[in-house]
């Protein structure tokens, strides 16, 4: 199975949100990584057939999704960034409704709901009204609905938002387990969500595709450019001029810093193995708020 995007473009009024995006996906997990507002959600909506692009094509095994119509959507599982639900429905009724939309029979739906609810640890909460669900429970319900029809293409927009650390680990495990025979594309701006499970990472910035490759390939591009150093606090401004400071941690009198730079940023700097987070910071260093993000981690 192959899902291909050809020259996808989209505008909202005069604003160009996506510019000539092309890539292809085969079974495995793909991480769509980029800061907020770079068009990840718009791209996923186009792939999920929720939004008609202003240009370009989405092809499944060489056939245009618009021509495939219902057949294309029958292989999809989609978790939108903001999952809606009917507050007066119970979780079970909501899932049965989605199953009916996906063409499952009542018995198929009930069997699948029980199975998935067990996996995401929601089995005991299914008969509660959706309006009483916490953010994490809603997210888990969203994951179940996306998986109900055994989708061959799973599109997950910020799936881990609202999940606690333990639920995130469970979720990553679940995605790894189900990805052997299907395409899983998950978007996030949290690198750790995809660091270990993504076969490939697609970096997006300002509506454009910046890079595509395995986490190791992308990290390899920064080999010899990532440094760790223990410095006095007064030297931090100098380091920021030389390179991109991606992490700062107070250690006694001084600071433990991680810097991306073409040369050693200071005498004490030691080269370290680049990570996906370094790649992210390298590409989005000029994005407003990037330093704030780096300092907070």
């Amino acid at each position: 199975m192959k899902l291909e995007l050809r020259s996808i473009q989209h505008r909202f009024g005069k604003k160009q949100v996506l510019r000539d995006i092309s890539f292809s996906l085969s079974p495995g997990v793909y991480g769509l990584l980029g800061p907020n507002g770079t068009g990840k959600t718009t791209l996923m909506r186009i792939m999920a057939d929720v939004l008609a692009p202003t240009g370009g094509q989405v092809l499944l095994d060489g056939q245009d999704k618009d021509k495939l119509g219902d057949t294309y959507r029958a292989v999809l599982g989609y978790l939108p960034q903001e999952l809606g639900m009917y507050n007066h429905f119970t979780g079970r009724a909501f899932l049965r409704y989605i199953a009916a939309l996906k063409g499952l029979t009542r018995s198929e739906a009930d069997e699948r709901i029980e199975q998935l609810a067990g996996i995401v640890n929601l089995a005991d909460e299914l008969d509660k009204k959706c309006g009483k669900y916490s953010g994490g429970m809603k997210r888990r319900l969203g994951i179940i609905q996306a998986l109900l029809n055994h989708p061959a293409v799973l599109i997950l927009d910020e799936p881990s938002v609202g999940l606690d650390p333990l639920e995130r680990v469970h979720f990553r495990k679940l995605i790894s387990e189900i990805s052997s025979d299907r395409i899983v594309l998950l978007s996030t701006h949290i690198v750790s969500d995809i660091d270990f499970i993504a076969r490939q990472v697609i970096l997006m910035g300002q509506g454009k595709l910046l890079r595509q490759g395995t986490p190791a390939e992308l990290a390899g591009e920064l080999a010899g450019e990532v440094w760790q150093a223990y410095i006095p606090a007064r030297l931090l401004p100098q380091l920021e001029e030389i390179g991109t400071v991606i992490n700062v941690q107070q250690q006694g009198e001084g600071l433990d810093v991680r810097v991306i730079a073409g040369r050693p940023p200071c005498e004490q700097a030691m080269p370290v193995t680049p990570s996906l987070e370094d790649v992210y910071m390298h590409h989005f260093k000029s994005t407003p708020g990037s330093r704030k993000v780096a300092l907070s981690r």
Binding site: V50, T71, R73, G84, I98, K102
Partner: peptide, 11 residues
């Protein structure tokens, strides 16, 4: 906010 789920389904 159910429109996205409905539009992305085969129905």
């Amino acid at each position: 906010r159910m429109d996205a789920l409905i539009l992305s389904s085969p129905s």
